[in-house]
Amino acid sequence: GLTEEQKQEIREAFDLFDTDGSGTIDAKELKVAMRALGFEPKKEEIKKMISEIDKDGSGTIDFEEFLTMMTA
């Protein structure tokens, strides 16, 4: 499992990506986040990433899903 410290770091990354503070990361926010990390993702790639992570089919990534992605 994760230490509380690791969870906190992932939470901070999540909050950075969640620019509108909605508690979820949408495609637009993910794209901005990827760019910040030096990637140039295409729209299809973003969609694919979200569909792989987005277990509940909401079209957005919540913290639990993000946590799973970061620790996979």
Rank of each mutant, 00 (worst) to 15 (best):
M34Q: 01
E9K: 15
D15N: 14
D54E: 08
L30K: 00
G38P: 01
T60S: 08
F66Q: 00
T19A: 10
F63S: 00
E65M: 14
E44V: 07
K55E: 05
I50Y: 04
E52G: 08
E45M: 13
M34D: 01
E52T: 10
V32E: 15
A27V: 15
K7T: 11
L30V: 08
E45R: 08
K43V: 13
M69H: 06
K55C: 07
D15G: 05
L2N: 03
E4L: 08
K7V: 13
M49Y: 03
L67Y: 07
T3R: 05
G23L: 02
L37A: 08
E64K: 07
E64M: 07
L67R: 01
L67Q: 02
D18Q: 03
E52F: 14
F66M: 02
G23K: 03
I10C: 11
M34Y: 03
T19C: 11
F63W: 10
E40V: 08
T3S: 13
E40G: 06
K42M: 11
E65T: 15
G23F: 02
K48P: 02
G38K: 01
L67S: 01
G38W: 01
A13F: 15
A27H: 06
K31V: 15
A13L: 15
A27Y: 13
K43S: 14
G57E: 12
E4R: 11
Q6R: 15
Q6G: 06
E9N: 12
K55W: 11
G23H: 04
Q8H: 12
L16K: 14
D20E: 04
I46T: 04
S22Y: 03
E29C: 14
A33M: 14
D15V: 05
F14P: 01
A33R: 02
D56A: 06
D26L: 09
K28C: 13
G57V: 05
E9D: 09
M70C: 14
D20K: 04
P41V: 15
Q6F: 13
S51L: 05
E29Q: 13
I53S: 06
A36G: 05
T24C: 09
I25Q: 00
I46S: 02
L16E: 06
K47D: 15
L2C: 11
E4W: 08
Q6A: 07
F39Q: 04
E44W: 04
E29D: 15
L67G: 00
R11P: 00
E65W: 11
A72E: 12
E45C: 15
R35I: 14
L67M: 07
M69T: 03
G38A: 01
E4K: 11
R35P: 01
T19W: 10
S51E: 14
G59K: 09
D18L: 04
F63K: 01
G38N: 04
F17Y: 10
E64S: 08
E4D: 12
D18K: 02
G57M: 11
T3C: 09
E65L: 11
E5R: 12
D54F: 11
E44D: 08
P41A: 10
F66S: 00
K28S: 12
I46W: 08
D15A: 09
A36L: 13
T68P: 01
G21D: 06
L67F: 06
A27N: 04
E40R: 06
K47V: 08
I53M: 13
E45S: 11
S22W: 03
T19I: 14
E65A: 13
M69E: 02
D20A: 03
E40L: 06
S22D: 10
S22P: 01
S22V: 04
A72L: 14
L67V: 07
E5D: 12
L30Y: 01
E29R: 10
K55A: 08
L2D: 02
D54C: 13
A13K: 12
E4Q: 10
M70S: 01
Q6Y: 12
T68A: 14
I10K: 01
E4G: 06
L37Y: 02
F66T: 00
F63V: 02
T60W: 05
D20V: 04
T24E: 08
D56C: 10
A13G: 02
D56R: 11
T19E: 07
V32K: 15
D56K: 08
D18W: 04
T24Q: 08
M69F: 15
S51C: 10
L67K: 02
T3G: 03
D15H: 08
R35A: 13
D20C: 06
D62F: 04
D56P: 04
K7L: 13
L2T: 05
K43F: 14
L2H: 07
A13H: 06
M70D: 00
E64A: 10
A33P: 00
G21F: 04
K48A: 12
L2S: 04
T71Q: 12
P41D: 07
T24D: 12
I50M: 13
S58Y: 08
E12S: 09
G21L: 05
D56Y: 09
D26N: 10
K48Q: 10
S51M: 05
E45D: 13
G1M: 11
K47W: 04
F17E: 00
G59A: 06
P41L: 15
S58D: 14
K31M: 15
P41M: 15
F39R: 05
G23M: 02
D18C: 06
K31C: 15
T24L: 06
